[in-house]
């Protein structure tokens, strides 16, 4: 028996919009810790990890650890039928091949339930160790989204370089080249407008902009994004989900051919 009641149902809607273009089918895992997912994109270049902690739900009942295979496009279709202010409850019975999403309007005058077929998905679960990063950049998520969008009109890849001067996003393409430098800026009125750069050592890595642009679909989830870089590791692009958890995207760098 599974029953997860999320008062801020819009969070789940935003999570689906953030990941559905990257991942087609995925297993959602439910345990005492929370509702989570780990999945690779179809070309096995990027990995997404989602955690919605049990404490973030108004009611969280998960009698045993369960893994439920879902088509994210179908799940998104159903969640789009929930209002932005609706309370969403996810319900499942042991051994059932369906899951139910219940949507309640804030005034309780409309209650809808949508039943979705589950699917069997054979997926690898990867262990992601804690790591030390050469540099961690925390910046407004809308700014990061804007930079990725702007650079993708010039080139296909972005070089992200962190030095003591700041963080530089560079690209090059047939029509020319572009460089955008952000300096650390903590003297802003609101904390969510700050750019904070922690650098242990300089780092410079190249990534496919197509994937970076896909990650920025998570922008509505968080006003800030954290980009963790290390020369031996995939970049981690993390969007925290208020009080509940995170969506993290991992992308391996491109190497010189």
């Amino acid at each position: 028996m599974l029953e997860l009641r999320l008062v801020q149902g819009s969070l789940l809607k935003k999570v689906l919009e953030a990941i559905k273009d990257l991942v087609t089918d995925a297993n959602f895992d439910c345990s005492a810790t929370g509702f989570s997912l780990q999945a690779m994109d179809s070309s096995h270049v990027a990995l997404v990890a989602l955690l919605l902690r049990s404490e973030g739900f108004e009611h969280y009942r998960c009698d045993r650890n369960i893994s439920m295979g879902m088509n994210l496009n179908n799940m998104s279709k159903m969640l789009k039928c929930a209002g932005n202010d609706d309370i969403i409850t996810i319900k499942g019975d042991d051994g059932s091949d369906t899951i139910t999403f219940m949507f309640e309007s804030p005034t309780q005058d409309k209650i809808a339930d949508f039943e979705m077929k589950l699917m069997d998905i054979d997926s690898e679960h990867l262990g992601i160790p804690e790591a030390e990063y050469h540099a961690i950049v925390r910046m407004p998520s809308a700014e990061f989204s804007r930079i990725c969008k702007d650079l993708s009109s010039i080139g296909d890849t972005v070089v992200i370089s962190v030095t003591k001067e700041g963080v530089k996003f560079s690209t090059r393409g047939d029509i020319g080249a572009a460089n955008i430098v952000l300096r650390q800026n903590t003297t802003v009125d609101k904390p969510e407008e700050a750019t904070i750069i922690e650098m242990n050592e300089p780092v410079s890595l190249t990534f496919a902009l197509r994937y970076m642009n896909s990650f920025t679909k998570a922008t509505p989830l968080s006003s800030m994004v954290t980009i963790s870089l290390s020369s031996e590791l995939p970049v981690v692009v993390e969007y925290k989900i208020a009080e509940m958890g995170y969506v993290r995207f991992y992308l391996a760098p491109k190497i010189e051919e």
């Binding site: 270049v45 995939p234 992308l251 391996a252 051919e257």
Partner: peptide, 14 residues
């Protein structure tokens, strides 16, 4: 996709 390292090259199966 030229020069792109697959992500599972970095993490071990758990």
């Amino acid at each position: 996709d030229g020069g792109q390292i697959p992500i599972h090259a970095f993490f071990v199966k758990s």
